[in-house]
Simulated assay, not measured.
Amino acid sequence: MDSEGWLKTGDLCYFDDDGFLFIVDRLKELIKYKAYQVPPAELEHILVSHPGIADAAVIPYPDEEAGQIPMAFVVRQPGSMLSDEEVMDFVGKQVAPYKRIRRIAFVSSIPKSPAGKILRRELINQALSSPKSKL
Protein backbone atom coordinates (compact mmCIF):
# COMPACT_ATOMS: atom_id res chain seq x y z
CA MET A 1 0.00 0.00 0.00
CA ASP A 2 1.24 3.47 -0.78
CA SER A 3 0.81 6.59 1.37
CA GLU A 4 -2.55 7.35 -0.31
CA GLY A 5 -3.99 3.91 0.45
CA TRP A 6 -3.58 2.36 -3.02
CA LEU A 7 -2.60 -1.29 -3.27
CA LYS A 8 0.14 -1.59 -5.91
CA THR A 9 -0.49 -4.81 -7.82
CA GLY A 10 1.23 -4.04 -11.12
CA ASP A 11 -2.11 -4.05 -12.96
CA LEU A 12 -3.24 -1.39 -15.43
CA CYS A 13 -6.78 -0.33 -14.45
CA TYR A 14 -9.38 2.37 -14.92
CA PHE A 15 -12.61 3.49 -13.26
CA ASP A 16 -15.68 3.98 -15.44
CA ASP A 17 -18.27 6.74 -14.99
CA ASP A 18 -20.21 4.56 -12.52
CA GLY A 19 -17.15 4.02 -10.32
CA PHE A 20 -16.52 0.41 -11.39
CA LEU A 21 -12.88 -0.69 -11.56
CA PHE A 22 -11.70 -2.51 -14.69
CA ILE A 23 -8.36 -4.33 -14.87
CA VAL A 24 -7.17 -4.24 -18.47
CA ASP A 25 -3.53 -5.38 -18.49
CA ARG A 26 -0.33 -5.87 -16.51
CA LEU A 27 2.16 -3.00 -16.35
CA LYS A 28 5.09 -5.38 -16.77
CA GLU A 29 3.59 -6.67 -20.02
CA LEU A 30 3.46 -3.22 -21.61
CA ILE A 31 5.54 -2.85 -24.76
CA LYS A 32 7.93 0.10 -24.58
CA TYR A 33 7.99 1.55 -28.10
CA LYS A 34 10.27 4.60 -28.10
CA ALA A 35 8.77 6.84 -25.38
CA TYR A 36 5.33 5.20 -25.58
CA GLN A 37 3.74 2.32 -23.71
CA VAL A 38 1.65 -0.09 -25.77
CA PRO A 39 -0.73 -2.51 -23.99
CA PRO A 40 -0.73 -5.92 -25.74
CA ALA A 41 -4.32 -6.64 -24.64
CA GLU A 42 -5.61 -3.66 -26.64
CA LEU A 43 -3.97 -4.93 -29.82
CA GLU A 44 -5.12 -8.50 -29.17
CA HIS A 45 -8.71 -7.31 -28.80
CA ILE A 46 -8.49 -5.55 -32.17
CA LEU A 47 -6.84 -8.55 -33.84
CA VAL A 48 -9.47 -11.08 -32.75
CA SER A 49 -12.22 -8.74 -34.03
CA HIS A 50 -11.04 -9.50 -37.60
CA PRO A 51 -13.22 -12.21 -39.19
CA GLY A 52 -10.15 -13.99 -40.59
CA ILE A 53 -8.42 -14.31 -37.20
CA ALA A 54 -9.28 -17.08 -34.73
CA ASP A 55 -6.83 -16.11 -31.98
CA ALA A 56 -3.92 -13.75 -31.42
CA ALA A 57 -1.26 -12.70 -28.94
CA VAL A 58 1.04 -9.68 -28.94
CA ILE A 59 4.53 -9.57 -27.44
CA PRO A 60 7.39 -7.08 -27.26
CA TYR A 61 10.08 -7.77 -29.86
CA PRO A 62 13.53 -6.17 -29.43
CA ASP A 63 14.36 -3.36 -31.84
CA GLU A 64 17.59 -1.34 -31.93
CA GLU A 65 15.89 1.94 -32.88
CA ALA A 66 12.62 1.74 -30.92
CA GLY A 67 13.61 -0.43 -27.96
CA GLN A 68 10.68 -2.79 -28.52
CA ILE A 69 8.10 -3.20 -31.28
CA PRO A 70 4.70 -4.93 -31.11
CA MET A 71 4.84 -8.40 -32.66
CA ALA A 72 1.67 -10.40 -33.22
CA PHE A 73 1.25 -14.15 -33.27
CA VAL A 74 -1.88 -14.83 -35.29
CA VAL A 75 -4.01 -17.96 -35.71
CA ARG A 76 -5.98 -17.74 -38.95
CA GLN A 77 -9.58 -18.91 -39.16
CA PRO A 78 -9.86 -22.19 -41.13
CA GLY A 79 -9.66 -21.41 -44.84
CA SER A 80 -8.37 -17.87 -44.29
CA MET A 81 -5.46 -16.76 -46.46
CA LEU A 82 -4.95 -13.52 -44.52
CA SER A 83 -1.53 -11.95 -45.19
CA ASP A 84 0.72 -10.10 -42.76
CA GLU A 85 0.16 -6.85 -44.70
CA GLU A 86 -3.63 -7.23 -44.32
CA VAL A 87 -3.26 -7.79 -40.57
CA MET A 88 -0.96 -4.78 -40.13
CA ASP A 89 -3.29 -2.56 -42.20
CA PHE A 90 -6.36 -3.71 -40.24
CA VAL A 91 -4.78 -2.82 -36.90
CA GLY A 92 -3.04 0.30 -38.23
CA LYS A 93 -6.37 1.86 -39.24
CA GLN A 94 -7.64 1.58 -35.65
CA VAL A 95 -4.68 2.66 -33.50
CA ALA A 96 -2.21 5.49 -33.09
CA PRO A 97 0.92 5.12 -35.25
CA TYR A 98 3.10 4.08 -32.30
CA LYS A 99 0.76 1.15 -31.53
CA ARG A 100 0.94 -0.42 -34.99
CA ILE A 101 1.90 -4.08 -35.31
CA ARG A 102 5.30 -4.22 -36.99
CA ARG A 103 6.01 -7.94 -37.11
CA ILE A 104 3.71 -10.96 -37.64
CA ALA A 105 4.06 -14.70 -37.20
CA PHE A 106 1.24 -17.02 -38.26
CA VAL A 107 0.92 -20.00 -35.94
CA SER A 108 -1.46 -22.93 -35.48
CA SER A 109 -2.22 -22.10 -31.84
CA ILE A 110 -1.43 -19.64 -29.06
CA PRO A 111 0.16 -21.28 -25.98
CA LYS A 112 -2.05 -20.76 -22.93
CA SER A 113 -2.11 -21.88 -19.31
CA PRO A 114 -4.92 -24.17 -18.08
CA ALA A 115 -6.66 -20.97 -16.88
CA GLY A 116 -6.53 -19.52 -20.43
CA LYS A 117 -3.77 -16.98 -19.81
CA ILE A 118 -1.46 -16.38 -22.78
CA LEU A 119 2.02 -17.78 -22.12
CA ARG A 120 3.90 -14.77 -23.46
CA ARG A 121 7.29 -16.06 -22.30
CA GLU A 122 6.94 -19.05 -24.67
CA LEU A 123 6.06 -16.74 -27.55
CA ILE A 124 8.97 -14.42 -26.76
CA ASN A 125 11.36 -17.38 -26.69
CA GLN A 126 9.94 -18.62 -30.01
CA ALA A 127 10.31 -15.18 -31.61
CA LEU A 128 13.88 -14.71 -30.39
CA SER A 129 14.96 -18.18 -31.53
CA SER A 130 13.64 -17.62 -35.08
CA PRO A 131 15.93 -16.33 -37.83
CA LYS A 132 16.20 -12.56 -38.12
CA SER A 133 14.31 -12.56 -41.42
CA LYS A 134 10.74 -11.27 -41.47
CA LEU A 135 8.39 -13.82 -39.94
Results as ranks from 00 to 15, higher is better:
L82R: 01
G79H: 07
E64H: 08
Y61I: 11
G92D: 13
P70D: 12
L47W: 06
G92Y: 01
M88W: 07
K34N: 12
A96G: 12
F106K: 09
S49A: 10
M71K: 15
V91N: 02
S80F: 00
I53Q: 12
G79S: 04
K99T: 08
P51F: 01
P60E: 08
V58R: 08
K99M: 11
I69R: 11
E85I: 14
L43N: 05
G79Y: 09
A35W: 13
E42T: 04
P39T: 07
K93L: 12
F90Q: 02
Q37A: 12
V107H: 14
I69H: 05
V75P: 06
R76N: 00
A57L: 03
V38F: 00
D63I: 08
G79I: 05
I101G: 03
P62K: 01
K34E: 13
R103Q: 07
V58Y: 08
V48L: 04
V87W: 00
L43W: 00
M71P: 11
G92L: 06
P51H: 12
D55C: 08
A66L: 11
A54H: 10
M88P: 06
Y98P: 09
Q77A: 15
I46T: 03
A105S: 13
G79N: 10
V91K: 03
A105L: 10
E86T: 07
A56W: 10
R100V: 03
A35V: 10
R102P: 02
D55F: 02
Q68A: 13
K93D: 15
L82W: 03
E85K: 15
E85F: 12
A72T: 09
I104M: 10
P78G: 07
K34C: 13
I53K: 08
A105R: 15
A41Y: 04
Y98C: 05
P62L: 07
A35Y: 11
Q37Y: 09
V38Y: 02
R102V: 03
I59S: 10
I59A: 12
V58L: 07
P60M: 14
H50R: 01
S49W: 00
Q77T: 15
S109E: 15
R76G: 04
Y36P: 04
A54I: 07
R100H: 13
V91A: 00
A56I: 05
V95L: 01
D63T: 04
E65T: 13
A56F: 01
R76M: 05
I69E: 09
Q77W: 04
A56E: 05
R103N: 04
I59G: 05
D63Y: 03
K99F: 02
V107E: 10
D89C: 07
Q94P: 12
S49V: 05
V48N: 03
A66Y: 12
I53L: 11
